[in-house]
Every structure is written in C-alpha cells, then in structure tokens.
Design a protein around this nucleic acid. Structure first.
Lengths: 104, 104
DNA sequence: AATATGGTACTACAATGTAGAGGAAACGAG
DNA sequence: CTCGTTTCCTCTACATTGTAGTACCATATT
C-alpha cells in the first residue's frame, strides 16, 4: 500500500457513513456533513464517494425505489474494513501531535 | 473568508509548529511529523509551509547561523492567529461527527 | 403530459500533496 | 585557502483531492 493517506473530506465522509450506519445514502450523508459544520456541494460529495469506492474504502448497494414523491432508488454506502483502517491511520498522527499540548 | 478549509498535511504542520513552539524550523518540524507517524519528504514540507505562509496562517523569521558544523541559518515558523483559527475550524466537524460513536 | 421532487452521475478546473534535484552557507581537515 | 561534508532551504513538475455546476433519471402530483 504505497499511498495510504486520505484527504480531509474523505475522512469526514467515512465518519459520516459510520455515524449513519445502514441508512447512509448520498443525501443523508450530505445533510450530516452540513450539520457538522462542513458545507459542501452535492456534486463534491458524490465525487468523493466514487473515489472512496474506487479505492475500496467503501462499498455500495442500490436500494429499492420508495413510494415517495420523486422516490428514486437510493445508493447506500458502508465503510469497508480497509476504510476503517484508513480512518484510524489518518487519525493517528494527529493524536500523537495533539496529545502533548491538548489542542485536539 | 470564502475558502477556510485546510488540508490534512497543512493541519498536521500547524500542529507540529505549535508543539515545537519557538524552536519550530523546517528540519525540526519534519522530524516531529515523522515521529508522529506521518512520513513525508522535506520538499513536501517546505512547499506546505510556503503555502501556509502565503495564506497568512503562519509567519516566519530567519534565525542566526549557529556554531555547529554546517550550522546554516534556520527559518523559524510560528502559527498566526488565523492559523489557530483555521486549525480549530478544521477540527470542529470531525469532533461533531465523532462525538456520537466515539471513533475519534 | 407537464411539472415538481428527491435523488445520482458526469465534466472540468482549483487547491493540496509529493518528491527530487538543486542551491547556499558554515565548518573541519588537509 | 579550497575541498568535502553537514545542515538547511528553494524550485520545479506532476499526482491526488476538493469543488461546484450541470445534466440526468425516476416517481408523484396536478
């Protein structure tokens, strides 16, 4: 694994998926991030999701269309083992640095 | 302030400077990051430092040459108020997301 | 059938991350 | 006093991530 660092957004997206659990699909993830204070466009999110999927950090499955107005099929995402690992790896240096003066 | 997100490396560099305090110069920062488990080339570090300086997140001053073998003048960096703010801003969404399932 | 709604995909460009090679300055040994 | 060694900074070029806008699709309402 030559390159194992993920970016800032990628990290947040992974966390949002974990938080949402089984109900993690695009729009919900977007809302979660906005609520957390990280504003971004919907397009930016899907691009990031695609890249995470390419790298094997998240997996996805298409859901059934719901009976709501505009109920298009949702794409549900979940964090793979490799994704959880990448998340931990991303957080480690920060923890080591912050531990010493408590800025976390 | 249209764009106020900083990247993963930028964040770590800011933290390393804070940790080192007055003794924060290139090589020391590099060593600190390596020790924290974030390996990177020296070139990558200086590029990042320049960009942080351009953005006004860090300031710098040239030191006096020391009396060591090869004791060339060092460039000392410090985190500006805007840098500390950016650091906090970068950490906020992560905290809000992680608070709920404790992955931090 | 037309439009509103909730959702995903594509495209193109900006910002960050990355490393390598290349100076510049100071010291010690000859 | 000049040469190699050490320490440190700068420049260049390219890869990866971040960003938003726009297009697109399917269903429900009217």
């Amino acid at each position: 694994m030559a390159k194992d660092y993920i970016g800032e957004l990628e990290e947040l997206v992974l966390m949002a998926i974990l938080k949402l659990g089984p109900g993690a699909y695009g729009a919900a993830i977007h809302e979660t991030l906005e609520d957390a204070g990280r504003s971004l466009s919907v397009g930016a999110l899907y691009t990031t999701l695609s890249r995470l999927e390419e790298k094997g950090l998240v997996g996805s499955r298409m859901g059934e269309p719901t009976a709501e107005r505009g109920g298009r099929a949702k794409k549900y995402f979940k964090v793979q083992a490799a994704g959880a690992r990448a998340l931990r790896a991303a957080q480690q240096p920060r923890q080591r640095l912050s531990a010493e003066y408590g800025i976390v």
